[in-house]
Write a protein that binds this DNA or RNA. Structure first.
Lengths: 77, 77
DNA sequence: ACAAAAAGTAAAAATGACTTTACTTTTTGT
DNA sequence: ACAAAAAGTAAAGTCATTTTTACTTTTTGT
């Protein structure tokens, strides 16, 4: 679907986690995923599922749009 | 992750599509996924990726929260 | 400087999202 | 009632997400 979702999907996970003073391990345990998943998401290695995205937003007390920003590319529909 | 994401994630895809008067095929083609994917999402068979969720929200001109509702279950963190 | 904790890297395995194909059932329009 | 379009089902296959394990590098605190 489309061209390289990674470049179109950005997230503020590193900043939000820093604000809370949490480690990657903390975040992983709090939402029940592996530490690898958090690392990979922070480094924007792949697109999370919507459920995981919601869980992260909830954890940080933010709306999903404040955590993830999706930029549409032109020339698509 | 957690217990049965399907029951916690709801969506209004059928309604939104009806409002537009579009077929499943229409939606599938507009965002570039298979018709099966639309069918499965409408029937809540699985969780979409965040990118697909954003694409659907964009297509219907809605915020992602207006399309998908995630209900947290109690007793989790 | 040292130890411990945190972050990063890598790769194989498991799971889940999504595709493709083909066929059945329901709905819609005339 | 009939034909055509739309919706639904199912199963096998592909590809991306997520896990697990193990090890290396960087950061933090004393």
């Amino acid at each position: 679907m489309g061209v390289d979702p990674k470049k179109r999907l950005q997230n503020r996970l590193v900043v939000l986690r820093a604000e809370k003073g949490w480690t990657q391990k903390d975040v992983a345990e709090k939402i029940g995923v592996s530490r690898q998943t958090i690392i990979s998401l922070e480094k924007n290695k792949y697109t999370p599922t919507l459920v995981l995205a919601f869980e992260l937003a909830n954890l940080f007390g933010k709306d999903i749009n404040e955590v993830f920003q999706y930029t549409r590319t032109e020339g698509e529909e």
